[in-house]
Design a protein around this nucleic acid. Structure first.
Lengths: 349, 349
DNA sequence: CTGAAAGCGCTTACAG
DNA sequence: CTGAAAGCGCTTACAG
């Protein structure tokens, strides 16, 4: 009842490299090599060690590792994305950094002009590698500068990955196709679309997927049913006013992110239109705003937190390899998206 | 250009306890004692050590400390607050945990019924102390259960702190007074109010402060100008419809949090009212939604992230003292709030 | 009140 | 391909 923090009883597992070594009949060194993916271990030895690790449910003690090799510092270079997107990204990145015993360094840069300085600040703070979310990961200059100084980095949520840079993303094109097909399956034929910031590569793919899927269904997309947005709530307001002032009105609006979809609902309510009875609205990303507004948004869940986690792992791996002098080629990961049907969508006329 | 990660050149400072010890003319042990606030150090020795620490800009290596004493685990027991509030809290708590070399454990519990189980899970995961945000920190049962098992804990953002439990908060009463005075100074006389969830203590104080301040200005608050909300966007929608259907309309609406204020703007736009020309709207908390909507919200900035950081420090201190067997009485911290005037407020009629 | 010694769990040269 | 030894920076009993 009292000794909740008994010393030595820390955490699950509790097995050390020595326990694993003894069970596998090798030295602690060899266990360490296996854990760190060192190439110079025979297949047979590796298997014995892996078996012992699994039997003992061994987990490396990150604190001890960090004490030995120095704390890994992961930089995150961010640039004015939506608040909701940013917090999901931060939570995922911070959590995985703490799992890896790494420290997260945040640095904001607004224009491309301030980007060079932000990178220099990150280096001065001791960053060992950098995570690059949108829109920076879509700017060739940013990636080039990072590459020039040999800094390991991973692009997060870019829609058009460069093969030479590691990247974690979802398939924006297929996600938008899935949403469009869903709207069609509900019986909608007259669907309007709100485009996102043309500087972001996902915006382009989401739009292309929408048009293609509509055309495949034999439905034309007249120019007036497409409004240009910038991914902000405010731009969504303007786009929605434009779209909903038309006669006849579309029966559904597919906004290419949640902030803009939330704005569409606000404008619709302003015109005394019921959502989804009079108008179906859907978004993309599944950020917190999707469940803040009412009715809650039907949207494509982009696992931003998981993407950040995977990106941290990829980056840490890259940093380790770099230190050990082992070359590592850029890894690319595609994570699954999900269509989340909530209350903002309903049957077409 | 290439050796960005020179081994040994880790981070700022680089001085160790030994460097400090040598400069201060004492042993490393003594330095450690000073760092950890151990009482058994003479005043003179402590001063010498502190001076050396300052000269060398020494910072403890959290990784090494964690390797020795085991990673500190900080539990966070949360329960369906607004998404925006939660992410600000998480970011602050995670960041400070990583500064302290502590690990953050998240556990959600929805009803009071699931609370006991959530606490048990946290203990099973090895939590050394627990952070309790609203609404749990306002539930006497929750705090009592934690106290019974002798678990260190800190309440975050409670409006009515219990003296026996450490707490970090802002002065909700003064914050709401400040906002009300601001509205009065703008020339508003007919101000409506949207109350928050009656279960949350901040909701009560914010309302009381509003009424008192109005009365001090010689202004009555008729019952129909007060609507009951629940801190959710949806409840704000209903409250705003009620308030804005009245004839004459109030010239300003003070919603007791941002989610509800955002809903007021949506309803106002729906009635073709311009904000702030036809109606001034303000919120409380300054969560991300305050800058997502348009016009951006005038609100009281509650430094949730900083509050979480301070709470983590208080908790870590409490845990250390408990381990060392030194009694520590519950600390209370009051952080400053700020009135942030944005675009949703303007001059009264 | 203060210190010498040992050890937290892991990894890095250095050998073989 | 594999291992014995030393050390990362800090703190915990144990003495004095």
């Amino acid at each position: 009842m009292d000794d909740v923090n008994k010393q030595g009883e820390r955490g699950p597992g509790g097995a050390t490299v020595y326990d694993v070594a003894r069970l596998a009949g090798v030295s602690a060194m060899t266990v360490s090599r296996v854990i760190n993916g060192n190439v110079h271990v025979s297949e047979a030895t590796r298997d014995k060690v892996l078996a012992a690790i699994s039997t003992l449910k061994y987990q490396v003690n990150q604190a001890a590792r960090a004490a030995r090799i120095g704390t890994l510092r992961v930089g995150l270079l961010y640039s004015n994305p939506s608040a909701a997107f940013l917090s999901a990204l931060l939570v995922g990145a911070m959590d995985q950094c703490s799992q890896n015993g790494a420290q997260l360094l945040l640095e904001r840069c607004d224009g491309l002009s301030s980007q060079r300085r932000a990178i220099e600040r990150l280096i001065a703070e001791g960053a060992d590698g950098i995570l690059v979310p949108p829109p920076l990961c879509d700017a060739p200059e940013a990636l080039r500068q990072l590459d020039e100084i040999g800094m390991p980095c991973v692009a997060v949520a870019t829609a058009r990955p460069v093969s030479s840079v590691a990247a974690v993303r979802i398939d924006d094109y297929e996600g938008a196709r899935t949403m469009t097909r869903y709207l069609l399956s509900l019986g909608h034929k007259d669907i309007a679309f709100i485009k996102g910031d043309p500087e972001h590569t996902p915006a382009q793919l989401r739009y292309q997927a929408f048009v293609t899927t509509m055309e495949e269904a034999g439905l034309a997309v007249p120019p007036q049913r497409v409004a240009q947005g910038l991914f902000t709530y405010r731009s969504g307001l303007a786009a929605a006013r434009n779209l909903l002032a038309q006669e006849p009105r579309p029966s559904a609006i597919f906004a290419s992110n949640d902030d803009m979809a939330a704005a569409v609902i606000a404008v619709a309510h302003g015109m005394h239109l019921q959502v989804p009875e009079d108008l179906t609205v859907c978004g993309f990303d599944d950020t917190p705003v999707a469940t803040t507004v009412w009715p809650e948004l039907t949207t494509i869940h982009q696992p931003i937190g998981d993407m950040a986690r995977v990106a941290v792992d990829l980056l840490v791996d890259q940093i380790r390899c770099r230190r050990a002098g082992e070359p590592r080629q850029a890894a690319h990961r595609l994570l699954p998206y999900t269509l989340v049907a909530r209350e903002s969508s309903g049957g077409g006329a």
